[in-house]
């Protein structure tokens, strides 16, 4: 398995969780993502900034009434990166299974 197949940003379990949450939604509120992954706002902000710098996540800020809100959305680049990463993970698992079957045979 070529290490280049893996996305280095998504090798971090927290970032993989954030991107996996966002892949099935058009947008998600920052607060909901924070509760879902069980992180503090500042820790999540840091991870989101990393993903935003790579172009994986889009951050939108706005107000609902007088309350500020932040929404996160996965970009097409982020979705493609997750697809490649998941495919690489699946290959690792499948190769391991094939190796185990060869040993058993």
């Amino acid at each position: 398995m070529d290490p280049a197949d893996f996305d280095t940003a998504l090798l971090d379990p927290t970032r993989l969780s954030i991107v996996s949450l966002l892949v099935g939604v058009e947008w998600a509120e920052f607060g909901w993502v924070r509760e879902s992954v069980g992180m503090s706002p500042s820790a999540l902000s840091k991870q989101v900034s990393t993903l935003e710098t790579r172009g994986y996540v889009e951050v939108k800020k706005g107000y609902v009434g007088k309350r500020p809100r932040t929404w996160l959305a996965l970009t097409p680049t982020g979705r493609a990166a997750l697809e490649r990463h998941v495919a690489a993970l699946r290959r690792v698992v499948e190769e391991s299974q094939r190796a185990a079957e060869r040993r058993d045979a």
Partner: peptide
Amino acid sequence: RMTPPAEAARALRDVERRRDQA
């Protein structure tokens, strides 16, 4: 480094769990 199979399987399970959560 290469991801060990158990770690890869765990990551895949987490991806699916998060999708269900969403």
